[in-house]
Design a protein around this nucleic acid. Structure first.
Length: 259
DNA sequence: ATGGTAGACCTTCTA
């Protein structure tokens, strides 16, 4: 079973590109982030034609996440539990049905810049909430994949120019600490477990020729429960997609599980 | 030291 995560930076602005990738890569499950539309404007038919079931948590203009699966999605959770007042569409979770069900979440963790503002506090608060929720999910002792744009550069090796990110929320000690704490609950970083080669990135900024200069960072991650990690077959970053026509600034990350 | 790009949408915000 192949599970993908991809921050598409507007699903409607990029529908042709996104559909092309789905036809080529044919993931069984996909987590999308930054769809940038409300539920009614999500192009569900384009994915249903390819055989996917679709669940969406949308928002006008910003954020928005989706789950796509070849088999039915059950037990859907819209929004990250723990704060009823949070209106940002950054989390959707469901159980992918099948002979060996797997629980999957599509995560769009807050960017948090600039660090001197309430945006950074929101990021850290959101990470604390994700930590508590993940703790509950791990107690189920099921195959679980928490996939998405974490907006965290875990280590210096995950940036081409780590010194350039020192003042950025993505590389702040407190962001990295919260990401490590999440992993210490018992979650494995699929890329690090399967491959781990340095210099592998999932995001290149649109600005200042970041792609042409390979000024990338690894911020899209798949965190696996032990029951999923034990069945990890491989993990691939679809780097070439960044060079396609009208690309997202992120590329897909694909995890293969023996499920 | 600065500015560079992209998307949604109404003019500026987010990234």
């Amino acid at each position: 079973m192949r599970l993908a995560t991809w921050n598409v930076n507007s699903v409607n602005a990029r529908l042709e590109t996104v559909v092309r990738w789905f036809e080529e890569a044919a993931p069984d499950v996909a987590c999308l982030q930054e769809i940038k539309c409300v539920e009614e404007k999500f192009p569900a038919e384009a994915f249903e034609r390819l055989g996917y079931n679709v669940e969406v948590l949308g928002q006008k203009t910003y954020n928005g996440v989706a789950l796509l699966s070849k088999t039915p999605l059950e037990d859907v959770t819209r929004g990250l539990p723990g704060d009823e007042s949070d209106e940002q569409a950054r989390y959707i979770e469901a159980v992918v049905s099948g002979p060996r069900p797997v629980r999957v979440a599509s995560i769009y963790l807050p960017n948090g810049n600039p660090v001197t503002t309430e945006k950074f506090d929101y990021k850290l608060g959101w990470m604390a909430r994700l930590h508590r929720h993940a703790q509950g999910l791990l107690a189920l002792e099921e195959p679980l994949a928490l996939m998405g744009d974490y907006n965290v550069i875990p280590e210096p090796r995950d940036a081409e120019n780590p010194e350039k990110w020192l003042d950025d929320a993505l590389f702040q000690p407190r962001s990295r600490e919260a990401f490590r704490a999440l992993k210490w609950l018992g979650l494995s970083d699929a890329y690090m477990q399967a491959d781990g080669a340095p210099g592998a990135y999932t995001f290149w900024d649109y600005q200042a020729g970041a792609w042409q200069r390979n000024h990338g960072i690894r911020i899209d991650h798949a965190l696996l429960s032990p029951q999923a990690a034990d069945r990890l077959r491989g993990c691939e970053i679809h780097r070439d997609v960044r060079g396609w026509e009208k690309p997202s600034d992120h590329v897909p990350l694909v995890v293969e599980l023996d499920l």
